[in-house]
Structures are given as structure tokens and as C-alpha cells.
Amino acid sequence: GTEDLKEEAKKALKKGDKERAKRALKKAGLSEDQIKKFIKEVL
């Protein structure tokens, strides 16, 4: 589900894998702006 994808994105970001995080967030249905915001909040 969406929460799982967001968790996956957080883990990817902590490993420095932004591309993987972006893919997971796109799958979760987030827009580009939401993805940028999510990444900023996590990092």
C-alpha cells in the first residue's frame, strides 16, 4: 500500500538512493511537488 511505499522511500533515502525513493513515491501516487517535499522532509 501507500504507507509501505513511503517506508520504502524513506529507507532508500537514508541509503542515499534518491532514484529508488522517487520510483516508490510515484507508485504511491504522489505528484512531483509532493515527492520533492517528501524528500526534503526526510533528508
Rank of each mutant, 00 (worst) to 15 (best):
E41V: 06
E8F: 10
L30R: 00
K14A: 14
K15S: 14
K37H: 12
K18I: 15
E7P: 01
F38T: 04
K22N: 08
T2C: 09
S31I: 02
K36N: 14
A21N: 00
A28Q: 03
Q34P: 00
L43P: 02
G16A: 03
K11H: 10
E32N: 09
A24F: 14
G1P: 11
A12M: 09
A12N: 04
K6D: 02
L5A: 08
A21K: 00
I39G: 01
R23P: 00
F38Y: 06
G29A: 02
E19D: 11
L5T: 03
G29T: 00
A21W: 03
K26M: 09
A24M: 15
K26D: 07
G16T: 01
D4R: 13
I39Q: 02
A24N: 06
E32S: 08
E41P: 01
E19I: 08
L25D: 00
K18L: 15
E3G: 09
K37R: 12
K22L: 15
E41H: 10
D33E: 13
K10V: 12
L13F: 03
L13G: 00
E41M: 11
E7R: 10
V42C: 10
A28I: 08
K11Q: 13
L25S: 00
E8S: 06
E19T: 08
I35K: 01
L5W: 14
V42M: 11
A9M: 03
K27E: 14
K18A: 12
T2D: 12
K18S: 12
A21S: 02
K15Q: 14
A9P: 01
F38L: 07
R23A: 14
G16D: 04
K10W: 05
L5P: 06
L5E: 04
E7C: 07
K40S: 14
E32Y: 08
D17K: 04
L13E: 01
L30D: 00
R20T: 14
D17V: 02
L30H: 01
A21H: 01
E3L: 10
I35R: 01
G16V: 01
E32C: 08
K14L: 15
G16C: 09
S31V: 02
G1M: 13
K10N: 04
E32I: 08
G16I: 01
F38N: 03
A28Y: 05
K40P: 04
L25A: 01
E19R: 07
A24V: 13
D17S: 03
A12W: 13
E8D: 07
T2L: 14
R23G: 08
K11V: 11
T2A: 13
A21M: 04
